[in-house]
Design a protein around this nucleic acid. Structure first.
Length: 198
DNA sequence: TAAGTGATCTCT
DNA sequence: GAGATCACTTAA
């Protein structure tokens, strides 16, 4: 799903702000289903007015998320304390936390909850890509976005476009790839997905 | 099922 | 510094 900067310009955007994210990670993870992740890429084009910078947006609906909640969550990077890598998790809500996993995949998370409380939501699936590594590859999301606000200025943000997901269309499941987190935390059903989507 | 890949973290 | 680990993907 694509639309140009010009086409979207007249429409009223409903960009999610810090208030939305400054809540329990599990609630945010659930409510992010059906919201749109929007990536803006700029390119220079030639017009009769000369060379201008042109922004093109790619918007994809979020279909799968995972919550990582608090210092006690053994599956969370924050469990071992504050480090250079996980620093964004302790900061303001509504900020991207991007890190490299397995040497080749960037994981995209949005920080949630109050300051000093480490929590985030991993964006694990969108309508046209399932798997956190594929999303970041498709939208060209890398470490340059780490610790940047989710807003137009950073080129990556989340919008509410009015899509409502019925509660019974939402499934909960255990998180992926966190078996190391022990019997309690690896079994928490902190993964949320829309039924019938890949 | 296992290789690929490299930043990060822990322990010397 | 060295060694282990890792919120994954792809090809077989």
């Amino acid at each position: 799903m694509e639309d140009t900067h010009a086409a979207m310009g007249k429409k009223r955007r409903n960009i999610l702000t810090r208030e939305f994210f400054e809540r329990d990670a599990r609630l945010v993870a659930r409510e992010l289903l059906g919201k749109f992740l929007v990536r803006r890429h700029y390119s220079l084009i030639r017009t009769n007015k000369g060379i201008v910078r042109w922004g093109k947006d790619i918007a994809v609906m979020i279909t799968e998320t995972e919550a990582y909640n608090g210092p006690e969550d053994r599956a969370s990077h924050a469990h071992r304390g504050r480090t250079i890598r996980n620093e964004p998790m302790w900061g303001d809500a509504g900020v991207w936390y991007v890190y490299l996993c397995y040497g080749m995949h960037n994981m995209l998370n949005i920080v949630t909850g109050p300051r000093e409380y480490p929590a985030a939501v991993l964006i694990r699936g969108v309508e046209s890509a399932n798997g956190p590594g594929k999303i970041t590859k498709m939208l060209q999301i890398g470490s340059t976005l780490n610790n940047k606000k989710a807003a137009r200025a950073s080129g990556l943000w989340i919008e509410d476009r009015g899509v409502k997901i019925a509660p019974r269309a939402i499934m909960r499941a255990v998180r992926i790839g966190v078996s190391y987190a022990g019997p309690v935390w690896s079994k928490k059903r902190y993964r949320f997905l829309i039924k019938n989507t890949a």
